[in-house]
Design a binder for these strands. Structure first.
Length: 312
DNA sequence: AACGCCACCAACCGCGAATCG
DNA sequence: TCGATTCGCGGTTGGTGGCGT
Protein backbone atom coordinates (compact mmCIF):
# COMPACT_ATOMS: atom_id res chain seq x y z
CA UNK A 1 0.00 0.00 0.00
CA UNK A 2 1.39 3.33 -0.99
CA UNK A 3 1.80 6.19 1.34
CA UNK A 4 -0.74 8.97 1.13
CA UNK A 5 0.85 12.29 0.18
CA UNK A 6 0.80 14.93 2.89
CA UNK A 7 -0.71 17.44 0.50
CA UNK A 8 -1.73 17.93 -3.09
CA UNK A 9 1.62 18.82 -4.59
CA UNK A 10 0.03 20.00 -7.80
CA UNK A 11 -1.98 22.64 -6.02
CA UNK A 12 0.38 24.01 -3.40
CA UNK A 13 3.14 26.47 -4.07
CA UNK A 14 6.67 25.11 -3.91
CA UNK A 15 10.14 26.58 -4.00
CA UNK A 16 11.53 29.61 -2.24
CA UNK A 17 9.38 31.50 0.21
CA UNK A 18 8.52 35.12 -0.44
CA UNK A 19 8.84 37.73 2.33
CA UNK A 20 5.05 38.00 2.33
CA UNK A 21 4.64 34.29 2.95
CA UNK A 22 7.26 34.42 5.68
CA UNK A 23 5.43 37.22 7.42
CA UNK A 24 2.11 35.44 7.04
CA UNK A 25 3.47 32.29 8.63
CA UNK A 26 5.36 34.17 11.31
CA UNK A 27 2.30 36.18 12.29
CA UNK A 28 0.09 33.13 12.42
CA UNK A 29 2.46 31.04 14.53
CA UNK A 30 3.11 33.93 16.89
CA UNK A 31 -0.60 34.43 17.38
CA UNK A 32 -1.81 30.86 17.45
CA UNK A 33 1.15 28.51 17.66
CA UNK A 34 1.11 25.68 15.19
CA UNK A 35 -1.77 24.07 17.02
CA UNK A 36 -0.20 20.64 17.09
CA UNK A 37 -0.97 20.10 13.47
CA UNK A 38 1.29 21.37 10.77
CA UNK A 39 -0.78 19.77 8.03
CA UNK A 40 -3.80 21.88 8.89
CA UNK A 41 -1.81 25.05 9.51
CA UNK A 42 -1.42 26.37 5.96
CA UNK A 43 -5.16 26.33 5.42
CA UNK A 44 -5.78 28.15 8.70
CA UNK A 45 -3.02 30.64 8.00
CA UNK A 46 -4.18 31.24 4.48
CA UNK A 47 -1.00 29.92 2.98
CA UNK A 48 -0.95 27.95 -0.24
CA UNK A 49 1.85 25.74 1.04
CA UNK A 50 2.33 22.17 2.14
CA UNK A 51 2.24 21.72 5.91
CA UNK A 52 5.63 20.11 5.89
CA UNK A 53 6.99 23.07 4.01
CA UNK A 54 5.55 25.43 6.63
CA UNK A 55 7.04 23.41 9.45
CA UNK A 56 10.44 23.34 7.80
CA UNK A 57 10.35 27.05 7.05
CA UNK A 58 9.45 27.88 10.62
CA UNK A 59 11.91 25.52 12.29
CA UNK A 60 14.85 26.26 10.05
CA UNK A 61 14.41 29.91 9.28
CA UNK A 62 11.62 31.88 10.92
CA UNK A 63 11.93 30.71 14.50
CA UNK A 64 13.04 33.70 16.59
CA UNK A 65 15.99 32.01 18.30
CA UNK A 66 17.68 30.87 15.10
CA UNK A 67 21.31 31.75 14.47
CA UNK A 68 22.78 31.49 10.99
CA UNK A 69 26.45 31.28 10.11
CA UNK A 70 29.27 32.47 12.28
CA UNK A 71 30.16 29.11 13.75
CA UNK A 72 32.71 29.30 16.52
CA UNK A 73 35.66 26.97 16.94
CA UNK A 74 33.97 25.57 20.00
CA UNK A 75 30.93 24.73 17.92
CA UNK A 76 33.17 23.17 15.28
CA UNK A 77 34.71 20.92 17.88
CA UNK A 78 31.37 19.90 19.28
CA UNK A 79 30.08 19.05 15.82
CA UNK A 80 33.19 17.10 14.88
CA UNK A 81 33.40 15.12 18.06
CA UNK A 82 29.71 14.35 18.07
CA UNK A 83 29.83 13.35 14.42
CA UNK A 84 32.72 11.09 15.20
CA UNK A 85 30.84 9.46 18.01
CA UNK A 86 27.24 9.27 16.85
CA UNK A 87 27.45 9.93 13.13
CA UNK A 88 24.97 11.99 11.18
CA UNK A 89 22.39 12.37 13.91
CA UNK A 90 21.98 16.01 13.05
CA UNK A 91 19.03 16.70 15.31
CA UNK A 92 20.98 15.47 18.32
CA UNK A 93 24.07 17.40 17.32
CA UNK A 94 22.02 20.54 16.73
CA UNK A 95 20.36 20.14 20.11
CA UNK A 96 23.76 20.68 21.72
CA UNK A 97 24.20 23.96 19.86
CA UNK A 98 21.71 26.60 20.95
CA UNK A 99 20.15 28.44 18.03
CA UNK A 100 21.34 25.94 15.46
CA UNK A 101 19.06 23.72 13.45
CA UNK A 102 19.74 20.23 12.21
CA UNK A 103 19.53 21.43 8.63
CA UNK A 104 21.96 24.23 9.29
CA UNK A 105 24.43 21.98 11.05
CA UNK A 106 24.12 19.39 8.31
CA UNK A 107 24.76 21.96 5.61
CA UNK A 108 27.65 23.41 7.55
CA UNK A 109 29.20 19.98 7.94
CA UNK A 110 28.72 18.97 4.33
CA UNK A 111 29.99 22.19 2.83
CA UNK A 112 32.72 23.33 5.19
CA UNK A 113 33.51 21.31 8.24
CA UNK A 114 33.89 17.97 6.49
CA UNK A 115 36.63 19.36 4.30
CA UNK A 116 38.27 20.87 7.31
CA UNK A 117 38.21 17.59 9.17
CA UNK A 118 38.89 15.03 6.47
CA UNK A 119 42.36 16.03 5.28
CA UNK A 120 43.81 15.01 8.63
CA UNK A 121 42.45 11.51 8.35
CA UNK A 122 44.37 8.64 6.96
CA UNK A 123 45.88 5.26 7.61
CA UNK A 124 48.68 6.69 9.72
CA UNK A 125 46.75 8.03 12.64
CA UNK A 126 49.04 9.33 15.32
CA UNK A 127 49.23 12.22 17.69
CA UNK A 128 48.70 14.91 15.14
CA UNK A 129 46.83 17.98 16.13
CA UNK A 130 43.40 18.79 14.86
CA UNK A 131 39.96 17.31 14.88
CA UNK A 132 41.23 13.78 14.52
CA UNK A 133 38.52 11.98 12.61
CA UNK A 134 38.98 8.54 11.19
CA UNK A 135 37.17 7.26 8.16
CA UNK A 136 35.10 4.13 8.30
CA UNK A 137 32.17 2.48 6.60
CA UNK A 138 29.33 4.81 7.36
CA UNK A 139 31.03 6.00 10.48
CA UNK A 140 34.48 6.65 11.74
CA UNK A 141 36.41 3.64 12.83
CA UNK A 142 38.55 3.38 15.88
CA UNK A 143 42.05 4.71 15.43
CA UNK A 144 45.14 2.65 15.51
CA UNK A 145 47.13 2.34 18.66
CA UNK A 146 49.15 5.48 19.15
CA UNK A 147 52.81 5.14 18.52
CA UNK A 148 55.59 6.16 20.81
CA UNK A 149 56.10 5.65 24.50
CA UNK A 150 53.24 6.46 26.77
CA UNK A 151 53.42 6.32 30.52
CA UNK A 152 51.47 3.48 32.02
CA UNK A 153 49.44 3.80 35.16
CA UNK A 154 48.62 1.07 37.59
CA UNK A 155 45.29 -0.58 37.22
CA UNK A 156 44.21 0.59 40.65
CA UNK A 157 45.01 4.12 39.64
CA UNK A 158 42.79 3.74 36.65
CA UNK A 159 39.90 2.32 38.61
CA UNK A 160 39.16 4.63 41.51
CA UNK A 161 37.22 3.21 44.38
CA UNK A 162 34.66 5.97 44.07
CA UNK A 163 33.66 4.59 40.73
CA UNK A 164 33.37 1.10 42.03
CA UNK A 165 31.15 2.39 44.78
CA UNK A 166 29.06 4.29 42.29
CA UNK A 167 28.58 1.22 40.20
CA UNK A 168 27.64 -0.95 43.10
CA UNK A 169 25.33 1.49 44.85
CA UNK A 170 21.67 1.89 43.95
CA UNK A 171 21.23 3.83 40.75
CA UNK A 172 22.50 7.26 41.49
CA UNK A 173 20.56 10.39 40.93
CA UNK A 174 22.06 13.76 40.30
CA UNK A 175 21.95 17.04 38.53
CA UNK A 176 24.52 16.29 35.92
CA UNK A 177 23.68 17.20 32.38
CA UNK A 178 25.14 13.96 31.16
CA UNK A 179 22.16 12.24 29.69
CA UNK A 180 21.81 8.54 29.69
CA UNK A 181 20.20 5.83 27.71
CA UNK A 182 19.51 2.20 27.95
CA UNK A 183 21.15 -0.29 25.69
CA UNK A 184 18.38 -2.81 26.08
CA UNK A 185 18.21 -6.08 27.85
CA UNK A 186 18.35 -5.80 31.58
CA UNK A 187 20.48 -2.68 31.57
CA UNK A 188 19.25 0.53 33.07
CA UNK A 189 20.67 3.98 33.57
CA UNK A 190 19.86 6.60 36.11
CA UNK A 191 19.71 10.33 35.63
CA UNK A 192 23.28 10.92 36.57
CA UNK A 193 24.60 8.40 34.14
CA UNK A 194 25.26 5.66 36.59
CA UNK A 195 24.63 2.17 35.49
CA UNK A 196 23.15 -0.04 38.12
CA UNK A 197 24.21 -3.59 37.39
CA UNK A 198 21.35 -6.01 37.09
CA UNK A 199 23.56 -8.87 36.21
CA UNK A 200 26.49 -9.94 38.35
CA UNK A 201 28.75 -10.00 35.33
CA UNK A 202 27.82 -6.57 34.07
CA UNK A 203 29.63 -4.09 36.16
CA UNK A 204 30.95 -1.09 34.41
CA UNK A 205 29.42 2.27 34.96
CA UNK A 206 28.46 3.43 31.56
CA UNK A 207 28.24 7.10 30.74
CA UNK A 208 26.47 8.10 27.61
CA UNK A 209 26.01 11.56 26.23
CA UNK A 210 22.87 11.19 24.25
CA UNK A 211 19.51 9.83 25.20
CA UNK A 212 18.98 8.68 21.67
CA UNK A 213 22.31 7.09 21.04
CA UNK A 214 21.85 3.46 20.19
CA UNK A 215 24.27 1.43 22.14
CA UNK A 216 25.62 -1.95 21.30
CA UNK A 217 25.09 -4.49 24.06
CA UNK A 218 27.62 -4.82 26.79
CA UNK A 219 29.35 -8.17 26.88
CA UNK A 220 27.90 -10.46 29.48
CA UNK A 221 31.21 -11.68 30.76
CA UNK A 222 32.56 -8.41 32.05
CA UNK A 223 33.88 -8.74 35.58
CA UNK A 224 32.09 -7.01 38.40
CA UNK A 225 32.05 -3.27 38.70
CA UNK A 226 35.45 -1.78 38.15
CA UNK A 227 34.83 1.71 36.90
CA UNK A 228 33.34 4.05 34.41
CA UNK A 229 33.98 3.16 30.87
CA UNK A 230 33.18 5.22 27.88
CA UNK A 231 33.68 4.66 24.23
CA UNK A 232 32.71 6.78 21.33
CA UNK A 233 32.20 4.15 18.73
CA UNK A 234 29.29 1.74 18.82
CA UNK A 235 30.92 -0.21 16.05
CA UNK A 236 30.88 -3.88 15.28
CA UNK A 237 33.02 -5.69 17.77
CA UNK A 238 32.94 -2.75 20.07
CA UNK A 239 30.70 -2.22 23.00
CA UNK A 240 28.67 0.77 23.99
CA UNK A 241 28.93 4.27 22.75
CA UNK A 242 29.47 7.68 24.20
CA UNK A 243 30.34 11.07 22.89
CA UNK A 244 33.10 12.71 24.79
CA UNK A 245 32.86 16.06 23.23
CA UNK A 246 33.91 19.08 25.16
CA UNK A 247 30.39 19.87 26.24
CA UNK A 248 30.43 16.91 28.57
CA UNK A 249 33.93 16.86 29.86
CA UNK A 250 33.13 18.81 32.95
CA UNK A 251 30.27 16.48 33.74
CA UNK A 252 32.35 13.41 33.21
CA UNK A 253 35.15 14.85 35.25
CA UNK A 254 32.77 15.36 38.12
CA UNK A 255 32.70 11.62 38.63
CA UNK A 256 36.36 11.55 39.37
CA UNK A 257 38.82 9.54 37.38
CA UNK A 258 37.63 8.00 34.18
CA UNK A 259 38.46 5.06 32.05
CA UNK A 260 38.17 5.91 28.43
CA UNK A 261 38.31 3.43 25.66
CA UNK A 262 38.55 3.63 21.95
CA UNK A 263 38.15 6.69 19.87
CA UNK A 264 36.91 8.89 22.67
CA UNK A 265 40.13 8.45 24.50
CA UNK A 266 42.12 9.01 21.38
CA UNK A 267 40.17 12.12 20.55
CA UNK A 268 40.97 13.55 23.92
CA UNK A 269 44.53 12.44 23.69
CA UNK A 270 44.82 14.37 20.46
CA UNK A 271 43.07 17.36 21.86
CA UNK A 272 45.73 18.45 24.27
CA UNK A 273 43.84 21.46 25.47
CA UNK A 274 40.75 19.46 26.31
CA UNK A 275 42.74 16.68 27.86
CA UNK A 276 44.73 18.96 30.05
CA UNK A 277 41.77 20.77 31.40
CA UNK A 278 39.03 18.74 32.82
CA UNK A 279 40.06 15.13 33.02
CA UNK A 280 43.36 15.18 34.89
CA UNK A 281 42.77 11.72 36.27
CA UNK A 282 41.47 10.16 33.11
CA UNK A 283 43.05 7.09 31.71
CA UNK A 284 42.49 6.03 28.15
CA UNK A 285 42.91 2.89 26.16
CA UNK A 286 43.82 3.10 22.52
CA UNK A 287 40.90 0.97 21.54
CA UNK A 288 37.99 -0.78 23.11
CA UNK A 289 39.16 -4.26 22.30
CA UNK A 290 42.34 -3.77 24.26
CA UNK A 291 40.48 -2.18 27.09
CA UNK A 292 38.06 -5.04 27.36
CA UNK A 293 40.77 -7.59 26.94
CA UNK A 294 42.77 -5.96 29.69
CA UNK A 295 39.80 -5.83 31.96
CA UNK A 296 38.70 -9.33 31.23
CA UNK A 297 42.07 -10.82 31.95
CA UNK A 298 43.24 -8.45 34.63
CA UNK A 299 40.26 -7.21 36.60
CA UNK A 300 41.56 -5.20 39.50
CA UNK A 301 45.07 -6.00 38.47
CA UNK A 302 47.60 -4.03 36.56
CA UNK A 303 46.88 -4.08 32.85
CA UNK A 304 49.56 -4.87 30.34
CA UNK A 305 52.20 -2.21 29.96
CA UNK A 306 51.18 0.53 27.60
CA UNK A 307 47.52 -0.30 27.46
CA UNK A 308 46.47 2.31 29.93
CA UNK A 309 47.70 5.80 29.24
CA UNK A 310 47.37 9.14 30.86
CA UNK A 311 46.94 12.38 29.07
CA UNK A 312 49.95 13.95 30.59
C1' DA B 1 31.46 39.57 -21.88
C1' DA B 2 30.37 34.82 -21.86
C1' DC B 3 30.83 30.55 -20.06
C1' DG B 4 31.67 26.82 -16.87
C1' DC B 5 32.62 25.30 -12.41
C1' DC B 6 31.94 25.24 -7.68
C1' DA B 7 30.30 26.39 -2.98
C1' DC B 8 26.55 27.37 -0.41
C1' DC B 9 22.09 26.72 1.46
C1' DA B 10 17.03 26.58 1.29
C1' DA B 11 13.82 23.36 0.24
C1' DC B 12 12.13 18.89 -1.04
C1' DC B 13 11.56 13.83 -0.61
C1' DG B 14 10.79 9.59 1.48
C1' DC B 15 11.07 6.85 5.35
C1' DG B 16 10.49 5.28 10.23
C1' DA B 17 8.60 6.59 14.61
C1' DA B 18 5.04 8.32 17.28
C1' DT B 19 0.41 9.35 18.00
C1' DC B 20 -4.45 9.17 17.29
C1' DG B 21 -9.04 7.28 16.75
C1' DT C 1 -5.14 -3.93 18.43
C1' DC C 2 -4.57 -1.90 14.17
C1' DG C 3 -4.79 1.17 10.41
C1' DA C 4 -4.49 6.05 9.41
C1' DT C 5 -2.39 10.23 10.20
C1' DT C 6 1.16 13.28 11.53
C1' DC C 7 5.73 14.35 12.99
C1' DG C 8 10.61 14.39 12.75
C1' DC C 9 14.72 13.09 10.69
C1' DG C 10 18.44 12.53 7.33
C1' DG C 11 19.65 12.32 2.48
C1' DT C 12 19.33 14.70 -1.66
C1' DT C 13 18.24 18.22 -5.03
C1' DG C 14 18.05 22.58 -7.28
C1' DG C 15 18.60 27.59 -7.43
C1' DT C 16 21.81 31.26 -6.85
C1' DG C 17 25.90 33.82 -6.66
C1' DG C 18 30.93 34.13 -6.74
C1' DC C 19 35.02 33.19 -9.09
C1' DG C 20 38.29 31.78 -12.60
C1' DT C 21 39.24 31.18 -17.43
Amino acid sequence: MGRAPCCDKARVKRGPWSPEEDEQLRAYVRANGFGGNWIALPHKAGLNRCGKSCRLRWLNYLRPDIRHGGYTEQEDRVICSLYASIGSRWSIIASKLPGRTDNDVKNYWNTKLKKKAMPMRGPHYHHHAGLGLEAGAGAFSAPATPSGPTPARSWSQCVPSSLQAAALSPAASGSSSVDTSSSGGDMCFAAAGMYQPQHPMQGFVHVDSSPQTVLAPMPLDVPAATGIWASSMPAAGDVGGVALEDAFLADLGAYGDLLLGGFGGQLLQDNKAAAAMELPGACYFPNMAEMWAADHAHANAKPPQGLCNTFT
